[in-house]
Design a protein around this nucleic acid. Structure first.
Length: 934
RNA sequence: GGGCGAUUAGCUCAGUUGGUUAGAGCGCUACGUUGACAUCGUAGAGGUCACUAGUUCAAGUCUAGUAUCGCCCACCA
């Protein structure tokens, strides 16, 4: 605990989060409140923090971890052995890019400094930003078990990666092969399918004439000799001039013509029947390529003729395999054209496109150019157009794992919340393709494979010695970042070793993350977890929505609308930001972050602070915490509490029940909103005001009122603590009289032996107790509140100064006893002069020069001398009469409906009848009043 | 081409299994330094719950369709 903080003996007038938060967090952490015990008997509750990338600062998406903190703090208060394990992801591509950028800013480059130095610099980067991220997470109040922090490239986790790789390799699921992969030319690495985003773009579709060869097939040249490549320039030779027939292909990528090894037509297409089996001469380089029949060619699309470029298009790749066509790679790794491209060698792919088009145009082979909208593959990192490229890479055959991951969900062993994402999950896993896991990067887990000179592959286990010998070398590539993240829920607990943490905390309870990484991460963890540990890694997968800006736009650096959560923590406090994020939306739905809400959440924290301040002053110095009050409230039923006491306890009981239900169904936002609503609109606005009246009573009344104030507030603080940990802790410290006590309570073990723990963090979470619910009290207070609001309304309409006490006559009928009992608070809250307040059962002569309020059978007269305007009063009453009559008509209609009376639940019908009776009573009295005035 | 989500007050959003007169915050109007809080209080204005047709005694809520916006998936050269 920072020495410099000294909690003031008295609560400050306003809550100042900046003063309190750092100190409270340090205290919590140092006291070991967040450290999970793996040898307690309590049932475990585990969440592995989705590790943030070590790329830099946190953004508001990370602040959504608050959902996890709410769950974790809640379960900790429920007494579970709660572990929230933090960590950081090395984030291969993203981090490497950042460090490369840094090097470039220093005037050097990754290539210039070399692999070893580059890695040293990247570890340096990790040390710096990893530390910053930890501090940021602390500032948000996240109750993470820092003693168990992990990094994906720690020794233990790296060993887990090698164990997993070895197992999958030995099981025949990891293999190496030459495949068409998604190639990122600027990063010069392969990426997996999920790392390719698709954008619709307006491009051009070109129709290009290919001359049909006049030579016999036996003389065709399928490949070019070196000389031919040099000679094959436009217009040379007779092939173009001699051609008598042309076939027109449609293409969006004319620059790949040099890689064509066939053109395809649909076997059913009558236009091209006679050409199947013949050859065409490839423009630009003069190679002869066959015309094949394949159903891939759609007769209704383009010209019905497709050029087949197997090395640069996934569909063409398939066609080539069916027809045993050669595959010609015409590109270098940086997407410039290579020597196979003849005259275009050395050109960048898009420059080559322009050059080829110009030449085709010149030769009269470009027939048409049409606008075309198509989906283009874009690199998730970097945003460039992905190039399909033939390349030797490592792959995982994920089908067997996918089947296990699928079964875990369909059999209900793992539940996905909201449920609709189950469909997305299953659809994806059912159609899954092999996963390319090798990356041509330096930052990451080096692929644990060694090659010998004679081409053998050695995959040692994690504990085996590194293969040594003449010419033996390790694969230079690294693994996809998501390979190691896929092991996160168990590698962090010590897998593959049989550790105490694994036994206690695995499988984990909840995985909570954004739906945007469902395919990247969630499915991978499910597959790896099921396959490698034999158990689904989570009981529940809870997916939250994306945080957008206040206008619903995605946060992005280019828009400049990225929000740094720490800015809001500084300005409004962590609780305010947390409460905003948790209450701004609903499960699984994107939420628009509106800073105005953070301001009002800050106001709420301050309101709570001041409620506490008020209660504290009313408790007095002699107040002692009664533990029975903290534990439960049932004991309250045995004492002569007032109607208002019983009402607020009943409302509190409802709240506890609602919160319990909402938390269990993952509706944390609604739970938070309900707590706020209760504290502000019911407890502060009404009970606290009523308590002021009651505290003027005798000692017994005072004592009971204090008990209720204390009990409800203290319980509400505990309810709210998972949402707003700081202000609830600080307020609770004051309220429970522990503010002045020494703070350090020792180790968690010592704490658990101490019955009274000093922090709200380890207090029990309020549990539903329906015995406290008092329906009659709620109904009665409802009536009293209605009268008070009615009187205030009239005062307002007649512009009675707020300070002025007025006279009033309540004609209460059957409610006389009730209202007489509540006389003091009615007088106080409606600002009626107690000496001039009459509460009578009936009144023979009703005042005429008074404003009247009618609530059912009850009438309130306010003889506002000199203020009453009779015609205005009449108009006001007439308006109310109109509303009451409309209400009566509606209710009568409903009750006259036989279906309603027969089929609706009795309670609903009953309520309707009572309502109608009340409205009738209102109408009768309103008419009387209007008549009296007339 | 499939699939999903959203549409409720001027703005940003809630609304548990269908059940009185649909709520909150911000904003707006009037008033207010009442002994916790002006980061506040009191009262108020403001909505055809996108549209259409159904189911039902009863629909913001369930069903079908339509429109608009957004997202995801998919090999249309």
């Amino acid at each position: 605990m920072p020495e410099q903080y000294q909690r003031p003996a008295e609560m400050a007038k306003a809550y100042e989060p900046q003063q309190v938060e750092p100190y409270l967090y340090a205290w919590w952490e140092q006291s070991g409140f967040f450290t999970a015990s793996n040898h307690s008997d309590a049932k475990p509750f585990t969440i592995s923090l989705p590790p943030p990338n070590v790329t830099g600062e946190l953004h508001n998406g990370h602040a959504m971890y608050v959902v996890e903190d709410v769950m974790v703090r809640w379960h900790r208060m429920l007494g579970d052995a709660t572990l929230w394990l933090p960590g950081i992801d090395h984030a291969g591509i993203a981090t490497q890019l950042q460090v490369e950028r840094l090097l470039i800013s220093e005037g050097t480059s990754r290539q210039a400094v070399g692999r070893e130095e580059f890695l040293r610099r990247t570890w340096e980067w990790k040390a710096k930003y990893g530390g910053e991220i930890q501090q940021q997470l602390r500032k948000l109040g996240f109750s993470l078990d820092w003693t168990r922090e992990r990094f994906t490239m720690d020794a233990g986790l790296s060993s887990a990666v090698r164990t997993a790789f070895k197992k999958l390799y030995d099981d025949g699921l990891i293999y190496r092969g030459l495949r068409l992969v998604n190639w990122s030319p600027s990063l010069q690495t392969a990426v997996s399918d999920v790392e390719v985003e698709h954008q619709d773009r307006d491009v051009s579709m070109y129709e290009v004439r290919y001359p049909v060869a006049i030579e016999e097939p036996s003389t065709v040249r399928l490949t070019l000799t070196a000389e031919a490549k040099n000679q094959a320039t436009w217009g040379s030779g007779s092939w173009a001039a001699d051609a008598t027939e042309f076939i027109t292909v449609a293409t969006t990528r004319p620059e790949t013509i040099m890689g064509d090894t066939a053109v395809a037509v649909n076997p059913e297409d009558p236009r091209y029947q006679h050409l199947i089996g013949k050859y065409v001469v490839l423009p630009a380089i003069g190679r002869h390529i066959p015309i094949v029949a394949d159903s891939y060619a759609d007769p209704t699309f383009g010209t019905g003729v497709v050029k087949i470029t197997p090395a640069h298009d996934p569909n063409d790749y398939q066609v080539a395999q069916r027809h045993n066509l050669p595959m010609i790679n015409i590109m270098n790794l940086d997407a410039t054209l290579n020597n196979e491209a003849g005259p275009y060698a050395g050109m960048e792919r898009f420059a080559a496109r322009a050059a080829v088009l110009a030449d085709l145009e010149k030769e009269g082979l470009l027939v048409a150019t049409r606008p075309h909208r198509m989906s283009v593959g874009i690199a998730q990192r970097g945003g460039e157009v992905i190039e399909p490229m033939l390349s030797e890479q490592w792959f995982v055959n994920v089908k067997p794992m996918a089947a296990m991951a699928l079964a875990a969900v369909t059999e209900g062993r793992t539940k996905i919340v909201p449920e609709r994402f189950e469909k997305v999950y299953t659809h994806w896993l059912e159609n899954i393709q092999d996963w390319c896991i090798s990356r041509q990067l330096w930052w990451g887990h080096r692929i644990p494979v060694w090659y010998t000179l004679d081409g053998k592959i050695i995959v040692p286990g994690p504990d085996d010695p590194e293969p040594q010998g003449e010419g033996i070398y390790q694969d230079p590539d690294v693994l996809d970042t998501w390979f190691s993240s896929g092991l996160w829920p168990f590698s962090t607990l010590g897998w593959p070793d049989d550790t105490a943490d694994m036994r206690k905390f695995y499988p984990t309870s909840v995985l909570e993350t954004g739906y945007d990484i469902l395919f990247f991460w969630v499915t991978r963890m499910m597959m790896m977890g099921c396959y490698l540990t034999g158990q689904a890694p989570f009981e529940t997968i809870y997916l939250h929505g994306l945080v957008r800006d206040k206008d619903g736009r995605k946060m992005s650096k280019t828009y400049g609308n990225v929000v740094n959560p720490l800015d809001y923590v500084r300005q409004y406090g962590a609780d305010a930001l947390r409460f905003t994020l948790i209450t701004s939306g609903t499960p699984g739905q994107d939420l628009n972050f509106n800073p105005e809400r953070t301001e009002s959440a800050r106001n709420f924290a301050n309101k709570l602070w001041n409620i506490t301040r008020f209660v504290l002053t009313k408790l007095g110095t002699d107040w002692k915490t009664d533990d029975s009050v903290i534990v439960g409230a049932s004991c309250l039923l045995n004492f002569p509490y007032t109607l208002a006491d019983r009402w607020i306890m009943s409302r509190y009981a409802w709240l506890v029940g609602d919160v319990d239900r909402l938390m269990k169904s993952y509706n944390f936002g609604e739970a938070g909103r309900q707590i706020q609503d209760f504290l502000w609109s019911e407890f502060a606005d009404w009970y606290v005001e009523i308590a002021k009246v009651q505290l003027d009573g005798d000692d017994a009344r005072k004592h009971l009122t204090r008990e209720v104030l204390y009990t409800v507030l203290e319980g509400s603080l505990r309810l709210l603590h998972p949402f707003m940990p700081f202000v609830t802790e600080e307020a609770w410290q004051y309220l429970t009289g522990r503010a002045a006590e020494p703070q350090n309570r020792g180790t968690p073990e010592q704490q658990s032996q101490t019955p009274q723990v000093a922090s709200i963090v380890l207090q029990p979470f309020p549990q539903p107790d329906s015995a406290i619910i008092d329906a009659q009290a709620e109904k009665d207070i409802e009536l009293v509140r209605g009268l008070i609001v009615g009187v205030r309304n009239i005062r307002n309409e007649y512009k009675v100064e707020p300070a002025r006490q007025v006279a009033a006559i309540l004609v209460a009928g059957e409610s006389t006893a009730l209202l007489q009992a509540q006389r003091a608070l009615i007088a106080r809250l409606a600002r009626i002069d107690d000496a001039q307040l009459q509460i009578v059962e009936s009144l023979a002569e009703k005042p005429t020069s008074a404003a009247a309020l009618v609530v059912g059978a009850i009438e309130v007269f306010l003889p506002l001398a000199g203020l009453i305007d009779l015609s205005a009063e009449q108009a006001r009453l007439a308006k109310e009469l109109e509303a009451a009559e409309a209400d009566a008509t509606r209710r009568e209609g409903r009750l006259a409906n036989g279906g309603f009376v027969d089929k609706a639940p009795a309670a609903v019908v009953q309520r309707e009848r009572e309502g109608l009776a009340a409205v009738h009573a209102t109408i009768i009295r309103l008419r009387e009043r209007i008549e009296d005035l007339g």
